[in-house]
Design a protein around this nucleic acid. Structure first.
Length: 399
RNA sequence: GGGCAGGUGGCGGAGUGGUCAAUCGCAUCAGACUGUAAAUCUGACGACUUUAUGUCUACGGGAGUUCAAAUCUCUCCCUGCCCA
């Protein structure tokens, strides 16, 4: 028996939530006190989680803390097909092995928020592989072509004369069948998943189950402030980013996202977030709140101490344009080498050509002195400090 | 099954035998300004080096024509539209 106050129920169904389908039903279920089976489906096509992924994980955690059963459902079958969601191109298929490997890594990162021992982990190949063609045909009959075409992204593709493969229609069927297999009471997902989540309801009904309720969470924009956070856009804050990077990335988000990030990526109470919103409106410097945001986020994924250090680092390097305290020191063979090689070979630039350009553009400093001659040789018998651009530092010394 | 149109750099999209490493826009990077925000301005933006009107690799894959091909021919693969 799970006791949950009405206040708490309302909170979990509102903060960072876009839509709850059959809200009244879900409220009743939650109030009743029965342990619910709550599903999150994951296609582990990549293994690097970013804080956009964590929005829904945070919501799961709330339910977990309330005592409900969380089922993390990995699409080791569906991932081989590829969900068309948000992709203008069909995703490339991954092998089952790759997917399972990714899933392991995924769990490692989810652990930072969820109590993984209490989570039930399932793999959908377990049942999807066993379906016969007849089963698939029957599943397909739950939907009409017109219904499938309602999906915004299919419409998008059609209007752009882009291909849609038959198998992409099957994706929502499989995801829906997953809900049947685990008898989900509630499924969570991003708003871009709404169609697939709804398919679960339809299919559960076809299998004489009570249809699951649905809770959708917002899609978090990336650090560029416009596009969905994602690896391909390179606008993401990874869960395993080092504290300094994480803090720096938070600082680079546009001001108008500060409040949204607080709501979706931190544990700060809503009342406090409202105060922040008001303060920014009243003309307080948003930077201060962004720093707070950075600290909160780094604290979640690293520690309070790391957060503090990251902020100090930021202030030193960017606010005061000084060289940070901690710069990696690399020991090199020999006593000197051309500057260009030094930059390229130590990952301060992706190629020698680019290293040359950076030098020519005045982006490179040696011991805090700007260097613009690309033929410079660097003697590192004594320690030498190299800075490329604003944020890349390296100290080198001969062995 | 028939007809038509396509496949170019991270993306969009020019180019239709040499002057093409390929106009332009977006993204990216650097510099200026700043709060590493946004906006704005400037520059860079395949790689390598002997930095040169240099070398190599690239316009779906392969083969060919030519002194010369992203551009022409053949073939294969992929996609969209229309008709049946």
């Amino acid at each position: 028996m799970i006791q949950t106050s009405e206040e708490k129920i309302n909170a979990v169904l509102s903060r960072g939530v876009v839509d709850v389908i059959q809200k009244r039903e879900l409220k009743k279920k939650l109030a009743k006190g029965k342990q619910l089976t709550i599903k999150l489906g994951i296609d582990p096509s990549g293994a690097d989680l970013h804080i956009g992924h964590m929005v829904v994980i945070k919501k799961l955690k709330e339910f977990q803390d309330m005592g409900h059963k969380i089922v993390l459902l990995f699409g080791n079958f569906t991932g081989q097909i590829g969900d068309p969601t948000g992709k203008m191109e069909a995703r490339k298929a991954k092998t089952k092995k790759q997917l399972e490997k990714n899933a392991e890594k995924y769990l490692d990162q989810v652990k930072l928020l969820l109590d993984i021992d209490k989570v039930e982990v399932r793999w959908n190949a377990e049942w999807l592989e066993k379906l016969s063609f007849a089963d698939v045909v029957q599943l397909s009959s739950c939907f009409t072509v017109a219904q499938m075409m309602e999906r915004d992204m299919f419409q998008d593709r059609v209007s752009k004369n882009m291909p849609i493969s038959m198998h992409e229609f099957l994706y929502p069927l499989m995801q829906g069948y997953d809900s049947v297999a685990i008898q989900a009471d509630l499924e969570l997902g991003g708003t871009d998943q709404t169609f697939n989540l709804l398919a679960g309801r339809t299919i559960q009904k076809a299998y004489d189950q009570t249809p699951q309720d649905i809770l959708t969470v917002p899609i978090l924009e990336g650090t560029d402030g416009t596009k969905k956070m994602g690896k391909s856009e390179n606008n993401y804050i990874a869960v395993d980013d080092a504290p300094n990077d994480m803090f720096g990335k938070v600082m680079s988000i546009p001001d108008n996202l500060i409040v949204k990030y607080f709501e979706l990526a931190t544990e700060i109470p809503l009342s406090e977030i409202d105060e922040i919103k008001q303060a920014i409106k009243d003309g307080d410097n948003p930077m201060e709140f962004k720093k707070r945001l950075g600290r909160e986020i780094v604290t979640i994924y690293h520690s309070e101490e790391a957060a503090q250090k990251a902020e100090e680092h930021f202030t030193t390097v960017f606010s005061h344009h000084q060289v940070p305290d901690e710069i990696p020191l690399k020991k090199l063979d020999g006593t000197s080498m051309p500057l260009i090689d030094l930059i390229a070979e130590n990952n301060l630039a992706p190629s020698k050509s680019q290293a040359r350009r950076l030098v020519q553009q005045g982006a490179v400093r040696i011991n805090e002195e700007k260097v613009q001659d690309i033929d410079t040789d660097i003697n590192f018998e004594k320690e030498v400090l190299i800075q490329v651009g604003k944020r890349r530092f390296l100290r080198v010394i001969g062995k």
